[in-house]
Design a protein around this nucleic acid. Structure first.
Lengths: 327, 327
DNA sequence: TTGAAAGCGCTAACAG
DNA sequence: CTGTTAGCGCTTTCAA
């Protein structure tokens, strides 16, 4: 059998002490350059690379961060994962994907099982009560995404300003009757958005009908089309782009034209939003920022800096083809 | 500071030897039930759970499998990741996501950095020459997806039969002039498909024009619309659903009706395929099977069973709304 | 700057 | 069935 080489293999070959080999990799500044060079070269020759598990046992760091999500097939998550992963890579942290498959009550157990292999945890499961998860993460640096809980660092996407901008934009186009396709009742984000829009409608005296709550799948939008068409509203705000896309498809089947008859605004600006015909006007989630802020917040905790302050990120209105003047 | 409890904490409290505690968790069959019960209960009480890193150091197993992908934002990957992850979970294996961000020549280094923390590796980077990756994975159980290399276990999606079925179906609808929107030149899968379709066209004497190769993004489909419209063909085969969706959007802008004027067939059956209007007829990739086969093949290698035989999975034609009779 | 020694938390022979 | 004894491969004081 051919085991992997260790610091001992190298030390033996070079007639030096294993500690020196170790230092050549972990604290190169403590080793004379020529010596370091010899070690690195021999390592290359033997195909050695440090064993992260052994290193982790003593340092207590694994270089891995868990990312809990409920459903990777939901188009919202890939860009979020992507952004977080890139930002973490800058801190030399790898990502362990914890996909709960929408089994929310299995999540604490999932976390528990891998806790000891993680340096930190990002909780991005919008429909799970965070208080159920936080205890399972005991002692792990934690970041909550789009969810809030006392005492935990959280990063939320705050659509306030952009949502109001969207609303204003639609109003400017002459729309006076609005429909909201509400997101999941258990989603903190959905509640925020619903609340905000309700306030705005009340303040401006504009007509607003709420449909839902929906699970926010494509099918939900598809079937909601009938209800939307039955109302006299000319502008629809969907909880997310997926539902907006469903609505688009549903309305198209009913021969309702978008944006000629009805304007639609989605939320998030996932890839799909550019792929519908017409392309969706939407409130873009700041994925890149999300990634940086999450990674930074996690890193601050891991490296023992002061506990970071929770952050609210602002969305941004992206105007495409699904909105137009009222006819 | 409050360290995590260890087997020693429990052993001390219970007045027994640490090994017994260890066994209560790792080999419960070797411990008297009542004793095991006491241990488990005390563990619960102290909030103990085994340290996977320490365990991994001695067993040489981490319970983690790396999953290398080039771009999580490509709609093909989420369902693939999902399937593989679920199937691996059945073997109690977690997934480490290695997203190379399309930086193909960075991939070997990425792998190298985490090699020691992995029990196995799934290479799902269709555009990277596998021979560049296999050495970096030295000694790790390996599964190649949609790529082949001598001596490595690979799982490929073989669209042969389903593709021919699709072709036959279109021909049955009266189409006689075909266009192929080819996938990336570096993609093994794209080559296979192109080859197969070419053979079929030659054998049947049907007209076939090839466009591309394309990177297979939405934009590629969008801009290809003009070229497609300029040809007299009435049936289009796109390398994947994303490009098919782009084509759909592009043709819609040109007032070409689908399927009235042109029929379109995509490939993979990603979520997007159901979300276009009209919904895409497509050759569905067997994601669930892919997951099972990948997990099984990996597990066979990890648990030291015989090296598995490479597997070719069959796609399946899914007929939706983007195909219709020739007019 | 390098060597020596101890130990991270756990498992795996081997005894008893 | 349980205790004993060694390490897994690395980092980290402490000396030299």
């Amino acid at each position: 059998v051919d085991r992997q080489p260790t610091i001992y293999s190298i030390a033996r070959e070079l007639g030096i002490h294993p500690s020196t080999v170790s230092r050549a990799f972990s604290r190169p500044d403590l080793v004379r350059p020529e010596m370091r060079e010899r070690v690195l070269q021999k390592a290359e020759e033997l195909g050695y690379s440090p064993n992260a598990v052994a290193r982790g046992l003593i340092t207590g760091k694994t270089g891995m961060v868990g990312l809990l999500i409920p459903d990777i097939d939901n188009p919202f998550f890939p860009p979020a994962i992507h952004a977080i992963q890139s930002a973490l890579a800058a801190h030399d942290l790898a990502v362990m994907l914890i996909n709960s498959d929408l089994a929310h009550n299995a999540e604490p157990a999932l976390i528990q099982r891998v806790r000891s292999q993680l340096d930190g945890l990002v909780l991005m499961s919008p429909r799970t009560e965070p208080t159920a998860l936080v205890p399972a993460a005991r002692g792990l640096p934690l970041v909550l995404v789009n969810v809030v809980a006392d005492g935990s660092f959280s990063v939320t996407i705050d659509s306030d300003t952009a949502l109001l901008e969207a609303l204003g934009y639609l109003r400017g186009l002459g729309h006076t009757e609005f429909v909201l396709l509400g997101g999941p009742a258990a989603s903190w984000l959905a509640q925020q958005r619903r609340h905000r829009i309700g306030e705005w409608a009340a303040a401006t005296g504009i007509g607003l009908r709420e449909l839902g709550p929906y699970e926010a799948g494509f099918e939900d939008g598809l079937t909601a089309a009938r209800d939307v068409a039955a109302l006299s509203a000319t502008a629809v705000l969907a909880f997310d782009d997926v539902m907006a896309a469903g609505l688009l498809a549903g309305l198209s089947k009913l021969e309702v034209r978008v944006p000629a008859d009805v304007s639609i605004v989605g939320c998030d600006d996932v890839l799909l939003a550019k792929m519908t015909a017409p392309a969706l006007t939407t409130v873009a989630a700041p994925f890149a920022e999300l990634g940086t802020v999450v990674a930074q917040g996690l890193w601050d905790q891991i490296s023992g800096r002061s506990r970071p302050e929770s952050v609210r990120l602002q969305g941004r209105l992206v105007i495409r083809e699904s909105t137009g003047p009222r006819h």
